[in-house]
Write a protein that binds this DNA or RNA. Sequence first.
DNA 1: ATCTCTTGAGAGAGCGCTCTCTCCACCTTC
DNA 2: GAAGGTGGAGAGAGCGCTCTCTCAAGAGAT
Lengths: 331, 331
Amino acid sequence: MRRPTLEAVAARAGVSRATASRVVNGQTTVAPHIRDAVLRAIDELGYVPNSAARSLVTQRTDSIALVVSEPGTRVFSEDPMFSTAIRSASMELEAVNKQVVLMMASSAKSHARLERYISGGHVDGVMLISMHGADPLPSALSRLRVPVVSYGRPAVPVEIPYVDNDNIGGAEAGVRHLVETGRRRIATIAGPQDMIGGQDRLTGYRNVLRDSDHRSIVAVGDFTRESGAVAMRQLLRDDPELDAVFVANDLMAVGALQSLRQAGRRVPDDVAVVGFDDIEAAKYTEPPLTTLRHPVAEQAAAMVRLLLNLFEGGASEPVILPTELVIRESA
Amino acid sequence: MRRPTLEAVAARAGVSRATASRVVNGQTTVAPHIRDAVLRAIDELGYVPNSAARSLVTQRTDSIALVVSEPGTRVFSEDPMFSTAIRSASMELEAVNKQVVLMMASSAKSHARLERYISGGHVDGVMLISMHGADPLPSALSRLRVPVVSYGRPAVPVEIPYVDNDNIGGAEAGVRHLVETGRRRIATIAGPQDMIGGQDRLTGYRNVLRDSDHRSIVAVGDFTRESGAVAMRQLLRDDPELDAVFVANDLMAVGALQSLRQAGRRVPDDVAVVGFDDIEAAKYTEPPLTTLRHPVAEQAAAMVRLLLNLFEGGASEPVILPTELVIRESA
DNA sequence: ATCTCTTGAGAGAGCGCTCTCTCCACCTTC
DNA sequence: GAAGGTGGAGAGAGCGCTCTCTCAAGAGAT
């Protein structure tokens, strides 16, 4: 009891396989009454083209690998940016009838597997999300002659089109807001320095405070709540006088708020806090978080467009999307 | 400049295509020195089997659809349960060399697309995550003669193996905790009643409070923070005397905590709050949330095992995993 | 010495589809 | 009316692989 083939459709419609194929693929050189007969046969038989056979001859698969190169398991599961990006990219690709093959690249073993898979021609292109600086994946993939685009600027200088948000500009805006509201000692909890986002947001912080006396100290987290809480405790220990902290993402800011609360500091009265990302949870912290919003879904959609553009042979310029300061109560 | 084929490997190793295929597929009926020659040729040529050609003949694709049937866009992006489940399932499938094809089923249009895709033989099996009660997908897919398993019990009675956590038992434990700690008027914020998880957790609440005078009122949310905040405001308006609330998931509990704060109620002194899920954020609320933990990753892994078992022809019983009360400060 | 059995390897038929090439019928043009 | 177009449809090759069938060679049994 096998699924019907194009052959069966053709037989039922009384035409050749070639003609049936033409109808299936929407070619216009088929007379209307024949096309109707074929369509009817397709409908009656419940015919669905066999994708394996099709891609065997067309050399296309119509599927795209969405590679999530994640550091710890924690981050991926907890950071809503990931799911938003995945979801948006997925919807966008669905709209153009491409499949999304989701691949996690955590270990070196999975890297090898990934490379083999991708070079195996299973996918037409690759979208890379959030890799670390040391990640060998971008360069490895770009060597594979497979179209690759990246969500976020790759850390190593490699010729891959990417979409990123203006991390530096956003961080600058956030820190500037702290300066303008009269804060004197502005610390920061930076993200992982092997991630571009982590680096750039720290750069933005430094750009504003360079040669000023507002600067305080830097602690480094890994974008998790827990690391934010730890970093905040350390900052309070190292500079008890600080009156503001710029945190490189909202998740860490949530942790920082908790540490501040536990240390008896009032936010924003004693210490102002600015986060980054504007995740949904930022509205629900105590107090609600002032943060920098960037369009994650749009960024993912832009990445998809970039990739599709690559398929068409177009050269793709990197895209940088703006960030926006959202002022709530924490600063 | 085409990728090397099995033919090329065979030629280089001086054997027939059939023998090369035997080596690639790990058959043992090949003499060691010949096997070595083939492996060397594979290595030198960088041969990777063409999956389209392979699945054309084997009628297998080695890929599994992970269908996320989500109601609103919000929930998926923000609820960390989704990403945890997806991640866990994905890792588990990778371990057995299966691909994960991610599919979002939001609109009716995407349902049609999905059915077509799945019945098109693109995937060997389907894993369904979180559908609504009215979701026609489970029955539709089970009709397609494609192996299907579900994350969470399907709302309609359909013969699909599933893995779920003990929603009723968990809710009972949570509400019982409130009773035992002396609460008198225990309200609840229920989940969407077209989702099994929403129904069952409400059932658990009712089971404990049936025929008791502890019972208060029921508000219904949709598992988002926002809906939790709204529902809490409504509960306070309708029963200002309530001294406890059992919230059907942590996300809504976060919203509820905010509303309680805004209403000037102290937690847990005035109102005790119990959530459900034990998401990471539950540790960082003010105060930290007492909630019911259930093993999301294990649940996803069990779902994968169920599906693999189905491939082997084994009959699969539903699996119910236990929940655990995690007592923090909110109750 | 003959026969059967096992082991190892090759030949070749497809899997279901696309796409080029070919051909036929009909229409235009001089 | 013959030559040249043109649109519509079929024939058939082949995409890269697996797998059955076949066969050769050697081992063991009679």
